[in-house]
Computed example of a mutant assay.
Amino acid sequence: MSYFPAFLKLDNKKILIVGGGYIAYEKLEHLLDFSSNISIIALELSDNMKRVIEEKSLNFEKRGYQKGDIKDFAIVIVAVDDIPLQARIFAESKEYNCLCNSVDSVDYCDFIFPSYIKKGDLTIAVSTSGASPAVAKHLRKYLQELIPSSIGEFLQEMKELRKTLPKGKERMKMLDKKAHDYINTWSSK
């Protein structure tokens, strides 16, 4: 079954990462593009995890996971190789109505991390529903090359225009033409 693409608003949503290795670090790096309300529980931390936790002043507890740790969190990322622990945390997440992602265990996931591009307000997500993360990664790289670095400034200009121009068909037509013309300049380069 395919995953439904959705963009979640993470404002005021607490996130917990269980684990402190390389994969936990990758997930942390992705999440920091959208939120800093992140806590980590792990027995050990990679050097990169230690550095980011210190730089971002994130909450960290050096210990193993304990039942009930997720009760105050909206999202939990389980980045440990312990499959029985992944299963337990996933089952517990249903009790607390929090979304769960267990790395490399789709049976214990409510959602997956797509490969994505983020440039200013633009976010493009690419997913193969877990069939081939490598294809998603290379497609993301291909798309990233197509998008000019000026996209952030252009989106800011469009945002300002939407705020200042009165709503209606004329505004829609003008903004549509402006977007169309901007994107058409990409192919003329």
Rank of each mutant, 00 (worst) to 15 (best):
S2L: 09
S2F: 13
P5W: 07
P5E: 04
A6T: 06
K9L: 09
K9F: 01
D11I: 04
D11K: 15
N12K: 15
I15P: 12
I15V: 15
G20E: 02
E26V: 00
E26N: 10
K27S: 11
E29Q: 11
H30L: 06
L32I: 03
L32G: 02
S36T: 08
S36Q: 14
S36Y: 03
I40S: 07
I40N: 05
L43W: 00
L43V: 09
S46T: 01
K50D: 01
R51Y: 02
R51H: 09
E54G: 00
E55P: 03
S57H: 13
L58K: 11
Y65K: 05
K67T: 05
K71A: 13
A74K: 04
V78G: 02
A79K: 09
V80F: 02
V80G: 06
D82T: 08
D82G: 04
I83A: 01
I83E: 01
L85A: 05
L85R: 03
L85G: 05
Q86K: 09
Q86R: 02
Q86M: 06
A87V: 02
I89A: 08
I89R: 07
E92L: 04
E92W: 03
E92N: 10
S93H: 11
K94W: 03
N97H: 13
L99H: 04
L99C: 07
C100Q: 08
S102Y: 04
S105F: 00
V106W: 00
D107W: 00
C109P: 12
C109G: 07
F113S: 08
F113E: 07
S115P: 06
Y116M: 13
K118Q: 11
K118W: 06
K118D: 05
T123S: 13
A125K: 08
V126E: 09
S127W: 06
S129W: 03
A131Y: 07
S132F: 12
S132L: 05
A134M: 11
A136Q: 08
A136M: 01
H138F: 13
H138Q: 14
H138G: 00
R140F: 10
K141G: 14
K141D: 05
Y142D: 11
L143E: 10
Q144E: 14
S149G: 12
I151D: 13
E153V: 14
Q156Y: 12
M158L: 15
E160F: 03
L161F: 10
L161H: 11
P166W: 05
G168D: 02
K169Q: 05
M174T: 05
D176H: 11
K178E: 10
A179T: 09
H180C: 07
Y182A: 01
Y182H: 06
T185E: 14
T185G: 05
W186A: 02
S187L: 11
